[in-house]
Design a protein around this nucleic acid. Structure first.
Length: 1316
RNA sequence: GGGCUUGUAGCUCAGGUGGUUAGAGCGCUACACUGAUAAUGUAGAGGUCCGUGGUUCGAGUCCACGCAGGCCCA
């Protein structure tokens, strides 16, 4: 940035523009690179970037996630760490494939047919980076610092090679195995279906199935009543009942044991089912009915509840196998807990067939229940037929299709003949094929094993290719045995600092406790291939861990290739590819190439690659190692070129939806491979919803475009809003109004404060060249704001260190708005613009400078752009910090010597007292301009008195009161009251507190005095318990003081003397007068240095007195060379005072800086130039780019249309002449006007703006508008505008624009009335 | 159905370890200030702290059971 001795004074600040400029600055000066290189040799802070996928466009939630990442990396940099952050791209996986399929208009089946795998994967490779430029653009624009030049990309060979390396490590540890999992499977098509395929429209169809509520006979069930006990379980797939191995109950669900009769066999039974579902199976009429009188066939079956159990009590109960065709290999047939059990339908007890349900398999495994298998195979084969072992003498089953739909009509007819024969003894005339389900149901009915059989319509998935029902079926897959280290993962998880904690202990912790093995297999094309080669009989296999290892194996295999018993074509393909690979290297580890490779087993048999790809989540979980192409080497951990291992990460952050995604895969792999956590601190961010709390979706059209938002409001405001509004782990209701508010409130205030500083610092030539004014020589308020500042440093540093940026942001915001701007600057304004360049003034500049610069640094992690600008603006002049950028600087360090809690306390008193007095004044219609003589502050102790005394000047000037007096007991006018200190007394007296409280409340003044003087008050409770109270046991405050206006807040009380002496009144008049003249000057468009002469037409004696008395004061304030009382004036303006009017003639004196004037004048004149510069029409404060543009445009057109061809180069002199003329041209005779009567405040307020002067000024407005834009703009923001707006009742969005348009009219109207 | 999470003013949010008058910003109403000025300040109105029970002298805060929203599973 340019070297200058002046602080830049920005006419208008648009954050979006600032950000582009700063971006440019960073680029030109390689600031990001320097932020890393300049920390060489420092301790490193390791950050892992979770790779996004660039096949979709980035959304506003990505801004959120990346802001969080960025903040802490920047913060740690400021704290002196070296923070390398490598960007990355997630490139594999189903979404990419689906997108390509859609674009090409093909399906998975077409791959390898209509399009070669080679071509297909090429398409995927192209598609996956489709939006990379958009992502890079967003990254840059939002100010997310990450290395985009050298990102890791998961499809690159090196990356895949590391994945292979890791897989081999797992393989060698015995943690990689082939097993089965229950998946949707289409027997008709002979293929498994992905969940995506099942979600195709039309897959789920309503079908009517035979369902059975089966009776499972309990073993050794201790019922309070005699008789057999059965568990009732419902199934819509009776064909799975021979595979039943367990029953699942919900542990929290309540169950009932019911005595009743089986509806089919009428045998007495006791059945167990969920209490909530009793009504579904039993009629109310039969409740506690008479069992003896029941006869077979009676409609109402008697029943009675014998006992009740919680699900947990039933767990472990045993029962007899329902259909004992095949025996389990280990003990089974127990009741087990099932987290998925509900009481929505069925019986609240779920039949578990571990081979045919995913839940079933899971809970069975967890409970140690074996599956029912024959030689390791499920009871139904891959074509959908029962194994021969499932053979029933009467009902058949063995070798039959379990679903009717799998049979052709001819097959059904054939089967019917057989059934007629076999079922002759049961069904006389069978005329229709009976499905497997129906026959099983029938068998159970007859055997007293079914409680209810019915047709039931429900939705069931069908294969989209064959239209036949899908079965859930065990299919082969490769797994990582995560369960082996489940305990260790939980243990390590406890050492991770989770933000928020609940995500770690709750969501993630519970998930780890219920972990199942990680299914790695995916039958797709675009992804990391599983590097395992197997012989066809699966007897031998080899896991490949690197490219070089693969090459070695290829060499061996090439030698033996000819001997393999394989088609010549296949061998030729293998030979060609493998020889090529040896010669030129392996160019691509993806399919189809890896599949060309045939390896040889130690026994000399050919081995083929297992066709699976691995889960993309493995890719991202491998990122800590693969991003550096870690291959074990000689190092135990991956390094990133530095001296310390780049593992584990100190910090990561992603959306909470990654809990079971990236967070898990990172954690699992690091635990399995390195027995370590992968990250020490993690912030899981919440969702970004629209402003109504609805998820953003393209369909609803409530999506926020991040580019537009950043472009319009700037990245800083967007980031600040996102972090400050709510903690990032809560969901964020993203409301653009909130961003506007941040813009205005925080950035606007900060910029205003800087502008204020720059304006005067430039005039005084303050460059911070002088030595620091020692703390003890600074004013009370200087030391106060510095104390607050250092408290702020402490707080923000702690918050950042704790990964809680929200706390930091809120504290900074409150400091800037409340402490710095609204209190410090407001109180100290005059120190900046009055007087010589003294040590006191220097102290003020230094203090304000320090605050601004420190705040910039503290806020820089969150708002990197604007704070850079602020830093450059300040530091460009002072050169106090040698860093070239704020992001290369050091985090401010709190100096505890600056922190003075007493001082902070008394300033708080000052603020409270001020507020109380304002409130009193307001309540009594005493404007602040009216000085008052005295205020009283009751004091309890010497310390309090000292505290207040230290800030009393400040209070007095703030509230315009002459004297502050303390009152204590000796004054005799104080009446005290006491309140029990419940917190303290509660601990001591507990239940007796009420009585003690009553005693205290009944204290007399004498009692209070006793307590205060003797430090103790003794009494007894009604039950004789002695009570000894100390002053700390009560809180003392004051009653109202008779004859005074009193207000209090907490223990603070203040009394106000509102008697107005003639003297005070006159001073009030003088101040009012100054105020009116200042307004007039402004209306006339005078600059600060313009001098005037005043002639006031005599009013009452007291007014004349007031003006004469305070003549010096008035003249100084309003830049008047003279103030003269005259008897009459033909050219005077009428001004509205509080309750009367004055006629005043204002003569403007030409402003050539008079020779011999003292330097102050000179300065003031240059100040005025500054000011006038600042008042150019586009003096927009913080506004959105568009709104400010709009406004500027609007103004321009407006003034252009009115101004015609008049250029804005009209001279100041001309302008003033215009004023003068208007003033002279005024024909109003000046006459003191008697007040018409008592006016209300409101009237007064309105009146004030309606003086004839305004009429003139209105004319002037027109005149000026035709001359310059500048004046027009100035005009527009006079008090009138606001007041008229209010009056016109244009509510809410009427905005100033509307008000402005009404200004002229209503003023005129008002004026006219007045004049008449 | 389960796990986690949220519920405080019209809106967005604060409210260590329980303490008797529940706060802020925005918005609204009114007023003030007028050399930071399209800025700012002050005041006012606005609360069943989601509900019901419980523990306690005392519950927005602790416990239980619900209700409603969200996320992730099933």
């Amino acid at each position: 940035m340019t070297v200058s001795k002046k602080y830049p004074e920005h006419k208008n600040v648009e954050l979006s523009q600032v950000s582009t400029e700063i971006l440019d600055f960073w680029k030109k000066n390689s600031i990001f690179e320097k932020s890393i290189s300049s920390r060489e040799g420092q301790p490193s802070f390791t950050f892992f970037e979770g790779p996004p996928s660039a096949n979709g466009t980035p959304g506003i939630h990505h801004v959120m996630a990346r802001t969080v990442k960025d903040i802490f990396c920047r913060y740690k940099t400021l704290k002196g760490f070296q923070v390398k952050r490598k960007g990355g791209w997630d490139t594999h996986g189903l979404p990419v494939e689906l997108q390509v399929e859609k674009e090409l208009g093909i399906t998975k089946d077409d791959i390898g047919k209509k399009i070669s795998v080679e071509e297909y994967n090429q398409k995927c490779r192209e598609a996956v980076m489709k939006y990379k430029s958009q992502w890079d653009d967003l990254t840059e624009k939002m100010g997310y610092w990450v290395d985009l030049e050298h990102p890791y990309i998961t499809f690159e060979n090196d990356y895949i090679e590391t994945c292979w390396y890791l897989l081999k490590q797992l393989y060698e540890k015995g943690l990689l195995y082939k097993g089965y999992t229950i998946q949707p499977y289409s027997p008709a098509a002979g293929t498994g279906l992905s969940s995506h395929e099942l979600n195709q429209p039309g897959c789920y169809r309503d079908v009517k199935d035979t369902t059975v509520v089966a009776q499972f006979k309990a073993v050794d069930f201790n019922s309070p009543q005699e008789g057999k006990v059965y568990f009732l379980a419902w199934t819509t797939t009776p064909w799975t009942l021979p595979s039943n191995a367990a029953l699942a109950v919900g542990e929290k669900i309540e169950y009932a044991l019911v005595k009743t009769l089986n509806p089919y066999t009428h045998q007495p039974v006791q059945v167990i089912l969920a209490k909530a579902l009793l009504g579904k199976y039993f009629q109310e009429k039969g409740k506690d009915g008479d069992f003896d009188s029941y006869r077979a066939g009676d409609k109402v079956i008697p029943w009675t509840v014998v006992a009740e159990y919680k699900g947990a009590e039933l767990v472990g109960k045993k029962y007899e196998q329902l259909l004992p065709y095949v025996q389990p290999e280990a003990p089974a047939f127990r009741v087990i807990p099932g987290d998925f059990v509900s009481t929505e339908d069925g019986t609240g007890i779920v039949h578990i067939a571990p081979t045919f349900g995913a839940d079933d398999a899971r809970v069975a495994k967890a409970a140690g229940i074996p599956a029912i298998l024959v030689d390791g195979e499920p009871l139904v084969d891959k074509r959908g037929r029962f194994l021969p072992q499932v053979q029933d003498e009467v009902f058949g089953l063995g070798g039959e299709f379990v679903k009717e739909e799998y049979l052709s009509d001819a097959e059904k007819a054939e089967a019917l003949e057989l059934q007629k024969e076999k079922l002759a003894g049961i069904i006389a005339k069978l005329d229709k094929y009976m499905s497997v389900d129906e026959r099983i149901a029938l068998k159970l009915k007859l055997g007293n094993q079914a409680f209810k059989v019915e047709k039931y319509e429900h939705s069931y998935p069908h294969c989209w290719r064959t239209d036949k029902p899908v079965l859930y079926y065990p299919l082969d897959s490769w797994f990582i045995r995560t369960t082996a280290l489940k305990g260790r993962m939980s243990e390590l998880n406890k050492t991770i600092n989770w933000k928020p904690e609940s995500t770690g202990t709750g969501r993630f912790g519970h998930w780890l406790e219920n972990l199942v093995d990680w299914n790695l297999s995916r039958s797709r094309y675009w992804g990391t291939p599983l590097p395992i080669w197997r012989t066809e009989d699966a007897s031998e296999e080899r896991c490949i861990g690197s490219v070089s290892e693969l090459k070695e194996e290829i060499k061996k295999s090439l030698a033996l290739l000819d001997s393999f018993d394989l088609p010549a074509e296949r061998k030729a393909q293998a030979r060609e590819y493998m020889s090529e690979a040896l010669k030129k290297g392996i160019h691509d580890l993806h399919r189809p190439y890896v599949d060309y490779i045939i390896l040889v087993s130690p026994d000399g048999k050919p081995m083929f690659r297992e066709s699976d790809l691995i889960d993309v989540w493995f890719d991202s979980g491998a990122m800590p190692y693969a991003q550096w192409h870690y291959m074990g080497d000689s190092k135990a951990l991956p390094f990133n070129g530095g001296n310390t291992p780049a593992f584990p990460a100190d910090f990561i952050s992603e959306g909470v939806d990654q809990t079971r995604g990236w967070f898990f895969t990172l954690h699992a792999l690091s635990t399995l491979l390195f027995d370590s956590v992968a990250f020490k601190n993690v912030v899981s961010t919440g969702l970004v919803l629209d402003k109504n709390g609805v998820k953003m979706s393209k369909r609803l059209g409530n999506v926020i475009n991040p580019f537009e938002t950043i472009g319009q409001y700037g990245p800083d405001a967007t980031r600040w809003y996102m972090i400050g509004n709510a903690p990032p782990w809560d969901n964020l209701k993203f409301n653009l109004d909130g961003v506007t508010e941040v813009l205005r409130r925080f950035f606007g205030t900060l910029q205003n404060t800087y502008s204020f500083f720059a304006l005067y610092a430039n005039l005084d030539g303050f460059t911070y060249a002088e030595k620091d004014v020692p703390l003890e020589k600074r004013t009370e308020s200087d030391r106060w704001i510095l104390s607050r500042l250092h408290s702020l440093i402490q707080l923000t540093d702690k918050a950042y260190a704790d990964y809680d940026a929200t706390v930091a942001v809120r504290a900074i915001e409150s400091f800037v708005c409340d402490d710095l701007s609204n209190w410090y600057v407001r109180l100290n304004r005059k120190r900046f613009w009055k007087g010589e360049y003294s040590s006191d003034k220097m102290a003020a500049y230094q203090t304000l400078y320090t605050c601004l610069e420190t705040v910039a640094k503290l806020a820089s992690p969150v708002a990197p752009f604007y704070t850079e600008r602020l830093f450059q603006d300040l530091n460009g002049v002072s050169k106090k910090d040698r860093s070239a950028s704020i992001h290369l600087a050091d985090m401010p360090v709190a100096d505890t010597r600056c922190i003075d809690t007493d001082l902070e306390q008394r300033m708080a008193y000052a603020q409270q007292l001020t507020s109380l007095i304002h409130s009193l004044r307001k309540g009594n219609s005493l404007r602040v301009r009216q000085p008052l003589s005295k205020m009283l502050v009751p004091v309890l102790n010497e310390n309090f008195r000292k505290q207040i005394a230290a800030v009393q000047d400040l209070i007095l000037s703030e509230v315009n009161i002459k004297v502050l007096e303390f009152v204590d007991d000796s004054s005799g006018i104080l009446v005290k009251k006491v309140k029990p200190n419940f917190k303290k007394l509660g601990k001591e007296y507990g239940a007796k507190l009420k009585e003690v409280g009553a005693i205290i409340q009944a204290f007399t003044q004498a009692d209070i005095l006793t307590l205060e003087r003797e430090g103790r008050f003794q009494t007894k409770l009604s039950d004789g318990t002695p009570v000894s109270l100390s002053p700390e046991d009560v809180e003392i405050s004051f009653e109202d003081i008779p004859g005074w206006l009193v207000a209090s807040a907490g223990s603070l009380t203040v009394a106000l003397d509102i008697t107005l002496t003639e003297e005070l009144k006159q001073e009030g008049v003088a101040r009012d007068f100054v105020n009116r003249i200042q307004n007039l000057r402004k209306d006339m468009g005078l600059e600060v240095q313009d001098k005037i002469e005043l002639q006031v037409v005599r009013h009452s004696e007291s007014v004349s007195q007031a003006l004469i008395q305070h003549q010096a004061y008035i003249c100084a304030e309003v830049q008047a060379l003279s103030l003269e009382l005259v008897n009459d004036s033909r050219t005077a303006d009428l001004i509205e005072m509080e309750d009367f009017q004055l006629a005043v003639d204002v003569q403007v004196i030409k402003t050539a800086p008079a020779p011999g004037k003292k330097s102050v004048t000179k300065k003031e004149s240059s100040l005025a130039t500054k000011k006038s510069k600042a008042k150019t029409p586009s003096k927009s404060k913080y506004k959105t780019a568009s709104s400010s543009q709009k406004k500027t445009v609007k103004k321009a057109t407006k003034s252009a249309s009115k101004a015609g061809s008049v250029t804005k180069k009209k001279t100041e002199a001309k302008k003033k002449t215009a004023v003068k003329k208007a003033s002279v041209a005024k024909k109003q005779a000046a006459k003191p006007i008697k007040k018409a009567g008592k006016k209300t405040q409101v009237e007064k307020g309105k009146k004030k703006i309606a003086s004839p002067v305004k009429k003139k000024s209105t004319k002037k407005v027109v005149a000026k508008k035709s001359t310059t834009k500048k004046v027009a703009a100035k005009k527009v923001r006079t008090k009138k505008a606001t007041t008229v707006k209010k009056k016109s009742n244009t509510k809410t969005v009427s905005k100033k624009a509307v008000a402005r348009t009404t200004v002229k009219k209503s003023t005129k109207k008002k004026t006219a009335k007045k004049v008449n």
